[in-house]
Design a protein around this nucleic acid. Structure first.
Lengths: 210, 210
DNA sequence: GTCTATATCTGGATAGAC
DNA sequence: GTCTATCCAGATATAGAC
C-alpha cells in the first residue's frame, strides 16, 4: 500500500528513509530486463521477485498488481527518452544539429545501455489496460512533441517535407523498428546507425515548401 | 451448432473430403481477428472456439496446441504479403514502379481488408517459441528478398542509397510501424499513405553510387 | 468431427506471523 | 518490509461418448 513509510520508531524493520523507494526502483529495473527479454506475459511475478532477491508475495507490498509494474517500467522508458532528447537539444544549435541530436538520443535510448525500458514501452504498448494506457499517453505525446517542433522548423527550412506529422511517424517508425533486428555487439554501433538513418531521411534533397 | 452437415454416409460424421481443412481455415481466420484485436495471450481457446461456433476441446482436433494456431496465422500473414508483392511486381515496369508496387502491396496487406494476419505476424513475432520461429523465418526472408532485389536495382540507378540492406530495414520499419497508429476509416487511405511514404523515401534526391 | 466433462497446472494475489 | 503458506481463478489440454 504505497506507504506507511519510515515507521521510524519501534518494532519490525522499516530501515532508512528511502528503503521502500529503493526497493521499488530495483523492482522496476529488474522488470524492465525481464519484460524485455521474455515479454510481459511470460514473466511471472515469481521470476521477477527472484530477480531482486525476494519472495513473490512481497512484490505486492510495493505494487498494487503486475500491470502496475508494467506501467512503471513504461513510464521509466518514456522518461528516459524524453530526458535524453532534452539533453541533446540543449547541446545543439542549428535545426540540422537538433535533428541529429534527436536521432542519436532516440537510438541510444532504444539500443544502448539501459535500453530495456523503452523497448518494453514500445512493444508492450498494445497490451496495456485502458486505464494505464491513458496515464501514459500524455507522456508519450510530450516526447513526440519534441520531434514535432524540430521537424516543423526543418520543414520551414526546406530540410524535410511539409507534412511533418506524417513524416514524424514515418521517421519514428523506422527508428523504433530497429529494436526488432538490431543486435548489440553487432557490426554497427547505435550512434552510427542514427547517423545513417539521418542520411536516409534528409541527405541530398530539397523539399518544396507547402 | 453450425454443422455436422451432410453426415451423408454411415455412422458418425467424417463428411466430404475437405471438411476438416475448411474448418481449420475458418479457425485460422477467426484467430487472426482475435489475436489482432486482443493479442495472443488474452485470446482464450474458449473464445476462439466460440468465434467459429464450436466447443473449446474440439480445437485440438484441428491443431496440436494454441501455439500451433499462432504459427498458422503468421504463415498466412507472410504468405498474403508475399503474394501481394508478387502480383504488384508482375504488373510493374520500371524500377520506380516496382518500388511503388511494393510499398502499396505492403501497406495494403498491413492496413487494408484482411490485415489481421500480417499484423499478428509482426507484433507477436517475439513471442513465438523457438521451434516455430525457425520455421517462419525462411518465409519472412523470402518476402524481404523481394524488397532486396528491387532496392539493389534502385541503388544502381541512383534512386536510393547504396547500403540497401540497411535502407530496406529502415523502409520496412517505417511501413510496419504504421500499424501502431493507423486507423482505418481515418482521414487517409492506405494507398495514399503508401504513396506519401514513397515520396518521403525517394522524392527529389539523387544518391551517389557506391 | 464434435460434444461433454474434467484433469491438471500455472500464476496472480492475499493473509497473517514476525 | 519481508517471509511462509495458500487460496483461487482461469487457462490449456485430454478422455471418451456419440
Amino acid at each position: 500500500m504505497e506507504s506507511s513509510k519510515e515507521t521510524g520508531s519501534a518494532a519490525a524493520a522499516s530501515a532508512s528513509l528511502g528503503e521502500a523507494r529503493e526497493q521499488r526502483r530495483r523492482i522496476i529495473l529488474a522488470a524492465a530486463r525481464l519484460f524485455c527479454r521474455l515479454g510481459y506475459n511470460r514473466t511471472t511475478v515469481r521470476a521477477l521477485a527472484a530477480e531482486v532477491g525476494m519472495q513473490s508475495g512481497n512484490l505486492f507490498y510495493h505494487f498494487k498488481n503486475k500491470d502496475d509494474v508494467l506501467e512503471a517500467v513504461m513510464r521509466e522508458g518514456v522518461l528516459l527518452a524524453t530526458e535524453a532528447a532534452d539533453r541533446a537539444l540543449a547541446a545543439a544549435g542549428s535545426t540540422q544539429e537538433r535533428l541529429r541530436g534527436l536521432f542519436r538520443a532516440h537510438i541510444q535510448t532504444l539500443l544502448g545501455p539501459d535500453h530495456e525500458a523503452l523497448q518494453v514501452m514500445l512493444y508492450e504498448w498494445r497490451r496495456l489496460p485502458q486505464e494505464q494506457h491513458q496515464r501514459l499517453v500524455a507522456l508519450r505525446d510530450a516526447y513526440e512533441e519534441r520531434w514535432q517542433v524540430v521537424l516543423d522548423a526543418a520543414a520551414k527550412e526546406g530540410l524535410c517535407p511539409p507534412d511533418t506529422r506524417l513524416f514524424r511517424r514515418y521517421l519514428l517508425g523506422a527508428l523504433n523498428w530497429s529494436s526488432e533486428w538490431f543486435r548489440a555487439s553487432g557490426e554497427i554501433e547505435p550512434s552510427d546507425l542514427a547517423d545513417r538513418f539521418l542520411r536516409f531521411a534528409l541527405e541530398g534533397r530539397t523539399w518544396t515548401s507547402p
